[in-house]
């Protein structure tokens, strides 16, 4: 077994192209999941007729079927009924729908927890339905359920690797492609494993910082007082990822 470090350095520019695509898909996926999640959660909490039921069915379907099948369905199945999308768009759409379904459940925990009296007092002050949603339910629900959502967001980053299946040129695809050409299996696998871990652990850490900022009670990270150091906090933040 010979390990060729030079090869990793040499392929780094290519890997960065893949990384860029991974980050692009993931960021858009997370943003759209956030939007879908918040609006779906509000619809469910307010029990809006029809919309609420549609959201419930959507969530159940997405959560109980594999992401890879969604991807293949949209990429290979939908063109038959006239919907043709390119691979990257399919990636963003499926990832957003997937993350959105999980985010609805995440945010519902928060929006349901907003107390009824707050909503009623908002209404009695003469706020419209929309204003109640905009100024009371969404901000409070978001803060309460952000920790749950951050798990989903990290999973969205991880699941961007599924897009290799339809040939989106992201990190995994680049590495597998290189392995097929140069047979430098060890080097490529190590390289992408390290890059993914850095990306995912970095994102987890970032989210845990945001969580602490949003936390009402300004508690420290799980584990309580006296476990200060940076490394310890980093380690704690990893434990929440799925």
């Amino acid at each position: 077994m010979s390990f060729d470090f030079g090869y990793i350095i040499k392929t780094l520019p290519l890997l960065m192209v893949g990384l860029k695509m991974t980050v692009f898909i993931s960021v858009l996926g997370i943003l759209f999941s956030l939007l879908i999640g918040l609006s779906g959660a509000v619809a469910r909490t307010l029990k809006m007729p029809v919309v609420s039921q549609i959201v419930a069915v959507y969530v159940d379907i997405i959560r109980n079927t594999p992401l890879l099948v969604h991807i293949f369905f949209v990429y290979f199945g939908l063109p038959m009924i006239g919907i043709k999308l390119d691979a990257v768009t399919v990636g963003i759409v499926t990832l957003s729908l997937w993350g959105g379904a999980f985010a609805v459940e995440n945010f519902r925990g928060g929006t349901d927890a907003v107390s009824k009296s707050l909503i009623e007092s908002g209404e009695s002050l003469g706020l419209s339905r929309w204003q109640v949603v905009r100024h009371i339910i969404v901000p409070l629900g978001f803060r309460i359920s952000f920790p749950a959502f951050s798990n989903t967001a990290v999973s969205v980053i991880k699941n961007s690797a599924y897009m290799t299946g339809i040939g989106v040129v992201e990190l995994t695809f680049v590495a597998v492609d290189r392995m097929a050409y140069d047979f430098k299996t060890y080097e490529m696998l190590l390289a992408i494993a390290v890059i993914y871990l850095a990306l995912i652990w970095g994102a987890s850490y970032l989210f845990s910082r945001i969580e602490r900022r949003l936390d009402f009670n300004k508690k420290t990270v799980k584990g309580g007082k006296g476990r200060g150091g940076f490394v310890e906090k980093l380690a704690l933040s990893f434990r929440r990822g799925n």
């Binding site: 077994m1 991880k158 699941n159 961007s160 690797a161 599924y162 290799t164 995994t172 590495a175 597998v176 392995m179 299996t185 060890y186 696998l189 992408i192 494993a193 993914y196 871990l197 995912i200 652990w201 380690a235 990893f238 434990r239 990822g241 799925n242």
Partner: peptide, 22 residues
Amino acid sequence: AELFRGLPIVITLFIVFFMLPE
């Protein structure tokens, strides 16, 4: 636990699939 929860499953799959023969 942290390592394999952190890695995407696809990567774990490829690591096992390509490394075992090596």
